[in-house]
Design a protein around this nucleic acid. Structure first.
Lengths: 138, 138
DNA sequence: ATTTGACTTCGAGTGCACTCGAAGGGGCAG
DNA sequence: CTGCCCCTTCGAGTGCACTCGAAGTCAAAT
C-alpha cells in the first residue's frame, strides 16, 4: 500500500512535499522483483535497510526505490552481487570516494560494452545460419 | 595434436583434401572450452560423439569443430542447454525438419535482440550515473 | 470471534552450468 | 623400466542467484 506520511509539523508554511513511502509489495511491483528477492537483497547487503513502521514492516522511501531501480540495471547488465555490494558500501561510506565508485561503474560499462559487441557478432552468425535455412527451403 | 589421416586409397588422382582430425586438447584450444566441458557437452547431448582412435581417444572432425563453434555462440548468447539439445536433436533426426530448426533459431534471435536492446537502455542509465559523478568532481 | 491476507524471520532447496578430483590406462622419452 | 603426461570414466562439488516453505505475528474485514 502506498502511503503519504502525515506531517506532524505545526508549521503550516512547510511546503516540502509529503514523503512517499512504499511497502514491499509496492516496490516489488515497481521493480519487477519479488518481495522474497527484495528481502534477499537486503540480507545480502545490496539494499539499505528501509525504515520500519510501528509493527516492523518495511517502508521504502523514494530514494530507496530509485536505488533499487538502478541496482536492477546493474544486475540485469550482469554486475555480480559481490560488486554491487562493493559499490553500495562506497556509497554508504559517505562523500570522498566518488572516484572509486566511478572506477567500478566504468569498469562495468566496459565489460558490458564488450559483451554487447560480442553478442552482436554472435547474433550475426546465427542470422547467417537462419539465412542458410531460408535459402535452402526456397 | 592435430593429425592428417593418411589416405589408404590407391587412387592417386584423388584430390579430396585429407581430413583433419583434432584431439580434445586442440578443440579446447580452438573453442575456448575446457576438455572437461567438451566431455560434459557430449554427455549432455549437445555435441555428437566424435570418432575414436584405436585406443579410444576422441578425434574431432572439422564438422565437429564447426558445430562446437556454433554451439558456443548459441550458449554465449544465452540459449539454455536444453534448447540447444532440442536443436541438435532435430539436426540428428535428418532432413525435413528444417522449419522446426528455424523456429528455434528465430525465437532465439528475437530473445537476444530484445535482451540487447534492454541492455543498451540499462547501459545508458549507467552512463548517466557516470556523467553525474564526473560533473560533480569537476 | 474468526477468518483472511499480508507481513515477518530463518533456513533450506532449486536450477543452471559447469568444474573438479579420483582412479586408472596407454604410449613414449630417457 | 620408470617417469611423465595426456587420456579415459564416473560422480560429486561449486558458485551464483535466487526461490520457496514453514511457522508465526498482526490488523483489518466480516
Amino acid at each position: 500500500m502506498v502511503t503519504v506520511t502525515e506531517t506532524l509539523s505545526p508549521d503550516l508554511t512547510d511546503t516540502t512535499p509529503a514523503e512517499h513511502r512504499y511497502d514491499i509489495a509496492d516496490v516489488a511491483l515497481q521493480t519487477g522483483l519479488t518481495a522474497h528477492t527484495l528481502r534477499y537483497y537486503e540480507r545480502a547487503g545490496l539494499v539499505q535497510s528501509p525504515q520500519r513502521d510501528a509493527v516492523g514492516r518495511r517502508r521504502y522511501s523514494d530514494a530507496d526505490v530509485r536505488w533499487i531501480s538502478f541496482l536492477t540495471r546493474l544486475r540485469s547488465t550482469g554486475m555480480p552481487i559481490r560488486v554491487v555490494r562493493q559499490y553500495i558500501e562506497l556509497c554508504w561510506a559517505g562523500d570522498g570516494n566518488e572516484p572509486d565508485r566511478l572506477v567500478i561503474l566504468e569498469a562495468h560499462r566496459e565489460t558490458v560494452r564488450k559483451r554487447l559487441e560480442q553478442a552482436q557478432r554472435d547474433l550475426e552468425h546465427i542470422d547467417d545460419k537462419i539465412d542458410l535455412y531460408r535459402k535452402a527451403s526456397s
